[in-house]
Design a protein around this nucleic acid. Sequence first.
DNA 1: AGCTTGCATCGATGAACATCAATGCAACGA
DNA 2: TCGTTGCATTGATGTTCATCGATGCAAGCT
Lengths: 126, 126
Amino acid sequence: MLGQTDACCPGLLTAPLDEDQATELAKVFKALGDPVRLRLLSMIASRAGGEVCVCDLTPAFDLSQPTISHHLKLLKQAGLIDSERRGTWVYYRLLPEMTDRLAGILTRPAGEPLPLAVETPAGAAS
Amino acid sequence: MLGQTDACCPGLLTAPLDEDQATELAKVFKALGDPVRLRLLSMIASRAGGEVCVCDLTPAFDLSQPTISHHLKLLKQAGLIDSERRGTWVYYRLLPEMTDRLAGILTRPAGEPLPLAVETPAGAAS
DNA sequence: AGCTTGCATCGATGAACATCAATGCAACGA
DNA sequence: TCGTTGCATTGATGTTCATCGATGCAAGCT
């Protein structure tokens, strides 16, 4: 999902995003747009060893287990995490490629030259 | 909004986010979780001069002018952009502090040491 | 086999969101 | 003063989302 679009990296702040790129990116940001999912992601990402059992995540919230499972599914669909079953437990881990990519997209390319503004908005060229 | 929380910068991937931080951050990511708003933001950010008139943004979408105005309002409330009225027109510009902060939050602190995983999930210590 | 535990999926419900048409309002020109 | 243009706000409507209880299912234990 959202796998390496060829024009993925110049990033958001330098060139106007086309519709397809915006749609794909929005899915990922939407997945991050919930406090429960952000906390889940940070708990997974900051875990020593890189993996967390769901049984360690659930008790940190005042939410039912199906709800946590639902949020984890959305994070997984966004390409932010992956899961693996080992015996009785399911372990989640961060997919750092996606966070790296987002960070790159939100990073400004050093110092903007800030060229002079053109004071001629649409339709003002009377 | 969301102004410099003292513990803002260690960022998401190193330590578990507390509830308040997650709630504040989620508002910003939620604002980015829509393709129209992402395109609006990139059009504003990539503009030479750093400012765009609304009259230049609206025709790029198949949406009514009030809808564009609504999305711009959400981006502004998230602290991502700011606006200024000059004469007849309203100009929007990027607030790079917020995107910088998001980029920092999503950036991993160099190379994770990846310490050995502890194979003992909750309740498994029989 | 039968029971228990850990987790995912399904179906329903209430809240939040995106969108539009109508309206309001400021700034400029005739 | 009146009409026009550029943009924001309001109210209404259809859609999406978060959450839960119930259920399903795999793995391990007795």
